[in-house]
């Protein structure tokens, strides 16, 4: 996945429909909503929140509600927190993060897909 171009939309199963080799298993939308292909990791030093900008692009666009903004225990500033067990790795956060060229949140892929 190249998240700078877009992200893996929860209601799309196109790749599984068109794959001619059977390498991508055929799934429906309901199945897809519970499949995790990675999990997001934050890069606090890139994040606008650290510069006093009130941004919530990642948490607002997270389809599973895995991203929350919490008060950092040491500084009291808001920081981005990802619940790695409910994150499905769709990359909406990475794609929609306004920080460029290196976004303040990115997806670590999984070796094997898991069910959440």
């Amino acid at each position: 996945m190249a998240f700078d171009k877009g992200y893996c939309k929860t209601d799309c199963t196109r790749c599984s429909e068109v794959c001619p080799a059977g390498a991508i298993k055929k799934i429906d939308e309901i199945e897809k909503s519970a499949i995790s292909i990675g999990h997001a990791v934050t890069v606090p030093q890139n994040c606008l929140l650290g510069q006093g900008v009130a941004c919530n692009a990642c948490s607002r666009h997270c389809p599973t509600g895995a991203i929350t903004l919490v008060d950092d225990a040491s500084t009291g500033h808001k920081v981005v927190a990802v619940n790695e067990n409910t994150c499905i790795g769709c990359g909406a956060c990475e794609h929609l993060c306004p920080v460029r060229p290196f976004s303040a949140i990115y997806v670590e892929g999984r070796e094997v897909h898991t069910t959440v």
Partner: peptide
């Protein structure tokens, strides 16, 4: 303890955002 309710997630992530639950 890796799939905690939200109150616990918030408390733990507050201390170390990139440490897993």
């Amino acid at each position: 303890l890796a799939n905690l309710p939200q109150f616990a997630v918030d408390e733990l992530k507050r201390r170390a955002p990139n440490q897993s639950l």
